[in-house]
Design a protein around this nucleic acid. Structure first.
Lengths: 124, 124
DNA sequence: CGGGATCCCACCGGATACTG
DNA sequence: CAGTATCCGGTGGGATCCCG
């Protein structure tokens, strides 16, 4: 009577494991939601500290409103910090937190894939 | 006269390298654009072959129209293949191509990050 | 079952102007 | 410079009906 129960449990466990993986990816996508966040994080990941205008130049196509909104969301999720300097006119710098830097593994894989994809498309 | 030129070249090269990394990430984001593609690929990555309705259940919240559209784009980019079986009623299966499976490294990293993120949020 | 066609609306997001 | 406010169009995406 043990074998049947165990196989049943195993099946349930597998289903749970699948749901768990789907859910974990979904959780990450939630944090990285929107069209620009990953590009913003990439720029900060590569360049370190970055000012508003610099980010706008790095992230091709983004407008000030969207950049502002995305930065705010990333700050709320503790992926980056905003620092205001009392200069004239004001200077604002954005920088990844240690936690934000943990996303670099994802960014790295996306960079690798993008490079080989471009080769694949243009190279034949 | 060589030193100044070399340092200048080095600077230019670094700027190009930055732009290249940003571009490669951007290229990947282009292919994976939209709200659902990564979830779809995740499901196919975990489950293997998958039917339309199964995918709709896996990808929580997606409607038939969006699922159809996203699948079409993924097929055009050769990340998955669509197979129609002549049953009654018709059966359609989607499956990652070998090329589509090269995205698994990205999915994997996103899964890892999502798991630790959930721990971080819920565990304190 | 696996979608396409149509209708419809929320909101994403761009352009511009303005403020501290 | 670093945003905010306002206006406004495009489209992402849901609901429903329909067809092979």
């Amino acid at each position: 009577m043990l074998k049947p129960d165990m196989s049943k449990k195993a099946i349930i466990h597998d289903a749970d494991a699948c749901k768990g993986k789907l859910r974990s990816v979904h959780d990450t996508l939630d944090i990285l939601s929107g069209k620009w966040k990953i590009s913003i994080i990439s720029s900060l990941s590569i360049n370190g500290k970055r000012r508003f205008m610099e980010l706008q130049r790095d992230v091709e196509g983004i407008g000030a409103k969207m950049l502002s909104k995305e930065l705010k969301e990333l700050e709320i999720n503790e992926l980056l910090v905003r620092t205001v300097y009392d200069t004239k006119p004001v200077t604002v710098e954005y920088e990844l937190t240690p936690y934000g830097k943990t996303l670099q593994a994802i960014i790295y894989e996306m960079s690798i894939w993008g490079i080989q994809h471009r080769k694949r498309i243009t190279g034949r």
